[in-house]
Design a protein around this nucleic acid. Structure first.
Lengths: 214, 214
DNA sequence: GCCGTCGGTGCGAACGTTCGTTCGGTTCGA
DNA sequence: TCGAACCGAACGAACGTTCGCACCGACGGC
């Protein structure tokens, strides 16, 4: 019976992985790349079999269906993001430092595992049933962490916390559509600039000008 | 020979439209809804024929191919966004007011024509060839307008203008993934909050603290 | 030490369905 | 009577998935 538990997938693969898990990791990696390039619906299992040098039927020893394949990719991606974020943002950090750590962690993960994170961001809500519920729960976890961090900041009373969190996620999750490694800043510099915008704004009130009547 | 020039599509349809253009508008409207709901690749022409009560073959009197259908939807959507933004942001406005007008225009258009704008945002880069080039040119126009407006602001020297513009677009373009009309603020209030974040930040330096030495 | 078989792995070929698109023809107002 | 609008039926291709079988290293009985 095929896998319900994915193990390795990123980079070098742990040495204690079984051959099955190692091969599954390769397949998920190729699937993440294809889904990121052409989208889930426009990628066929035949494309995947070509990309990983396996036969069509052979692939089905590693997953039950195309939907499960997407689920495994998204679950692994979410688990990576969430565990990195949790490790980077201990609750005892001061609010602003915690926000900066969260943003830095998010960006490092996203830029380091771009195809996976593109699938996570772009193929939202295409799963259904239990798969959808499981991914939605992970998404909720991540959102709750961000909300906890953002609401610890001294938000202006006119700013709805939900709008603040979603705007932050907007800046972060939009990056996969425009970031070019050779042209744009790396994760660290990008995190600083985005935190600067989110915390202080892109045009902080001018040095000594009057409050500029409204 | 079918249309290369779409005319009406939104709301009530201009009274001077030909029956052809009026019907094409209905079809594009239905297509925008379906593409927004299930994605371009997962929507079939048969779905569309069901939704607009036409036969499969009959639809092809209004477009040449599924790709052209997506192109017509995206072009119309982009033209709507761009012309609204241009009208709302005359160059003689002061920089901050111009930015506020741009954001307000963007949000009003996006929330008023949500399925169209979802297709614009989500189905990026799925076209190819001349269709892709034409849409990319419109996107470039819109980006240039935003960049012109943002760079007129007194940006901190450590903030790359490209990052600032893309972060603004991130906040704006992410909204289609989370905004619920019954729960979240409308276009005007949302525009104010997002401008507040983008201009002054979500945690502006406290009221009377010293300028916080650097 | 050898043999038999057994499960994990993999494949070629095919299943039935759905896809985008086209063909040939009908209807009908101008 | 002509052309725009429309449709039923079909085309070939591609889809996700399954069937039946081959290969092969592991392992227990003799």
């Amino acid at each position: 019976m095929p896998a319900a538990f994915a193990a390795a997938a990123f980079a070098p693969a742990p040495p204690d992985a079984t051959p099955f898990d190692r091969r599954l990791g390769e397949i998920l990696h190729a699937a993440a790349e294809l889904f990121a390039e052409h989208g889930y619906a426009a990628t066929s299992i035949r494309d995947l079999s070509r990309r990983c040098g396996a036969s069509l039927a052979g692939l089905y020893h590693y997953f039950h269906s195309k939907q499960e394949l997407l689920f495994l990719v998204q679950r692994h991606a979410f688990q990576t993001v969430i565990s990195a974020a949790r490790a980077a943002t201990p609750p005892e950090l001061p609010p602003e430092a915690r926000l900066r750590a969260f943003v830095a962690s998010h960006l490092e993960t996203f830029l380091a595992h771009r195809p996976w994170m593109t699938v996570l961001t772009h193929e939202d809500e295409v799963l259904s049933g239990d798969y959808l519920r499981a991914i939605a729960a992970l998404k909720h976890d991540y959102y709750q962490l961000a909300r906890e961090i953002v609401t610890a900041l001294p938000l202006p009373p006119t700013l709805a916390p939900r709008v603040a969190v979603m705007s932050l996620f907007g800046m972060l999750n939009w990056i996969y559509t425009w970031h070019q490694p050779k042209r744009d800043p790396g994760a660290t510099a990008l995190a600083e600039q985005i935190c600067a915008i989110f915390l202080r704004g892109a045009a902080p009130t001018a040095r000594r000008r009057r409050p500029a009547q409204s």
